[in-house]
Simulated assay, not measured.
Amino acid sequence: MVSLLEELERREAAIRERVGELRQQVAELSDQLAAFEEMLAQVEVARMVVREILDDAAADEVVPRKDAGPAQAEAGSPIGVVTVPPWEPGMGISVLSEGYREVVGVLQAAGVNGHVVLPRGGQ
């Protein structure tokens, strides 16, 4: 028959083992949480940069007067206009404007993998 002290020692050892396992899980989850918090911050920055770019483009838009001719009425926001050159093999992000390069940098820092795909001739 097992003595009371032996049973308590067995239980204590089992509990210590479980505490160690839980501490390891907490450490792993803390690392994951920190990584996702960093990615979240980077995506928030990317969103703010894109919003700033779009706001700047909208602020630059020329509001046509009612008596404006077709040429003046068409001037305005670059939104919807191809703002990067047509893609050619071997092109890198250096062909992008500074704002777009910043967005690509933030996405890369956030761990978004893959290649930057530049639009082909307005597509």
Results as ranks from 00 to 15, higher is better:
M1N: 10
L4E: 00
L5V: 02
E9Q: 13
E9A: 06
R10P: 06
R11I: 10
E12V: 11
A13Y: 06
A13K: 15
R16S: 12
R18D: 11
R18A: 12
R18S: 10
V19E: 12
E21Y: 08
E21H: 11
V26N: 10
V26A: 14
V26T: 09
L29N: 11
L29C: 05
S30K: 13
S30A: 14
D31S: 15
D31I: 08
Q32N: 10
L33H: 13
A34D: 12
A35N: 07
E37W: 02
E37P: 02
A41H: 12
E44S: 12
R47F: 09
V49A: 10
A59C: 03
D60W: 01
E61K: 13
P64C: 07
K66M: 08
K66Y: 09
P70H: 09
P70F: 04
P70T: 04
P70S: 09
A71C: 05
Q72L: 15
Q72R: 13
E74T: 08
A75G: 06
A75H: 09
A75C: 09
A75F: 09
G76F: 00
G76H: 02
G76M: 01
S77L: 04
S77F: 04
P78L: 06
P78E: 08
I79Q: 12
I79V: 15
V81S: 12
V82R: 14
V82P: 13
W87K: 07
P89M: 04
P89Y: 00
G90L: 04
G90T: 02
M91P: 04
G92F: 08
V95K: 01
V95L: 04
V95E: 06
S97Q: 12
Y100H: 15
R101W: 07
V103E: 01
V106Q: 15
Q108K: 13
Q108F: 07
A110Q: 01
G111E: 02
G111N: 03
G111Q: 02
G111Y: 03
V112E: 03
N113F: 09
G114V: 00
G114F: 00
G114Y: 00
G114L: 00
H115T: 11
H115D: 14
V117F: 06
V117P: 01
P119F: 03
P119H: 02
R120L: 13
G122C: 03
G122L: 00
G122A: 01
Q123Y: 12
